[in-house]
Amino acid sequence: MTNTHRSTHWDIFCTVVDNYGDIGVTWRLAKQMANEYQIPVNLWVDDLASFSHILPTLDPLKTAQSFNGVNIIHWTKPLPVAFIAGAVLIEAFACELPEQVKAQLVYLHQNDPKSVPIWLNLEYLSAENWVEGCHGLPSLQANGLKKYFYFPGFGAKTGGLICEQDLFAERDAWQANSANKLQLFSQLGLRGIEAQDTVISIFSYETEALPALCELWQQSAEKIHALIPKGRSLNSLTQLLPCDIAALVPGQQIIHGNLTLHILPMTDQQGFDRLLWSCDFNIVRGEDSFLRAQWAAKPFIWHIYPQEDDYHLVKLEAFLKLYCDNLPPKIACYWSELNLAFNQAQQSAVSLHWQNLNPVNLPLLHHAKQWPINALNAADLATRLVQFVKNS
């Protein structure tokens, strides 16, 4: 059966990697396409249990359900519902499409070419120079179909960065009143945090750099509060914990000198954004949290996912060079060295660079505030993606 009048809906397929990274990006994109562009979106996800950690109202046992205008479908083998090709098909981060989807694409290509969706591979975000040259390139598949490579990025010739239209205005309104962050901390069950205290959020992979920083923070002249969810960061801090990680409960406090560790409950994406807005410094990992830390307009450390042959350090240095372009050389050097030392687990170096770089240094804060505006390059990823589809 042919389908000459192509449906307007989009399909996004996502496999959950590292629990929250890939699904975090695709969930934000799906919501934005549905809410800001009124595009019907089917989001196919293979791991609803992990997904539910950032979308608490999601039922991991349901085959299909809708939230924020997005149809969420459990991606199983075989697919639990029939796949009907729409206007656009996105495979997030090179996930392998189901055979029945590929078979339908081939059938449409052979029998009803006008109904074949525009097929995109949404790639990982990178600040490397080569991204602009590869963004948007088509790839002819063995079955005769054409797939485009869509690269998010910081340059004007890339696919852009995920950012909701009202995000910066909401952030500015939130940060204008310190009562907002104190109310949020209270809602999260965190006690004893005053408006003038230094608050640091930690969402990293395992690293020996963390205990080194915590040892330094214990000796701080002022109170420091480190907010950490149960997860991989705590694996590096077992010597500071009073019990096994599994026995920790949200809201629990562990005090060492002038450092207080607070165990965070899981939160949805809006709650996570507000948490980053409310902290003085953020340590983040992966891609989704990395970008949200930039949008928070606060200083941060990016703990990038380790890759073979230390290629992740090449990607990190490409971003550091871009981010530091307008920073005073001394501050740029300290901030870059801090990020590199953290990613290489250099304990003494990370402590030294933390002390050299005052995290609330006014030039760094001013830069963190201006950076999101510069990084967007006048158009976010969703806007560029819609235009790309139109041009294709």
Rank of each mutant, 00 (worst) to 15 (best):
F51I: 02
L237P: 04
L381F: 15
Y311G: 14
L313V: 10
S278H: 12
F319Y: 15
N121F: 13
T267M: 15
D22R: 01
Q252Y: 07
H74G: 00
A368G: 06
L145W: 06
W75F: 08
S351C: 09
C279S: 15
Y305M: 12
N19D: 13
A379E: 15
L79K: 05
P359T: 10
E96L: 00
T198V: 14
T198W: 15
D166N: 06
I331P: 00
Q355D: 15
V360L: 08
S348Y: 10
A176M: 07
G153C: 02
E208Y: 07
H262Y: 14
I72A: 09
D309Q: 11
A30F: 01
F83W: 05
A169W: 10
T207K: 02
P117R: 00
V41T: 01
L184K: 04
Q387E: 14
P265Q: 07
L234Q: 07
V249N: 07
I193H: 13
V389K: 03
A345T: 01
A293Y: 14
G24F: 09
L61G: 09
V389M: 08
N68G: 05
L385G: 06
N339A: 08
G144C: 05
P265T: 07
F168D: 14
V45D: 10
H9C: 02
S289A: 11
L43W: 00
S115G: 02
K157E: 14
Q165V: 09
E170N: 02
V88K: 02
G155R: 04
K146A: 13
F149I: 05
A64G: 03
K62R: 06
Q344S: 07
D325N: 01
I304C: 10
N68W: 13
K31V: 03
S126D: 15
L227S: 13
A345P: 02
K62V: 05
L316H: 05
P242L: 07
S52Y: 11
L145S: 03
I202L: 11
D288S: 05
I84S: 13
S220N: 15
P242D: 13
G21P: 08
M33K: 01
L322P: 02
V116L: 03
V70M: 03
R6K: 15
L240Y: 08
W302S: 06
F93D: 10
I254Y: 01
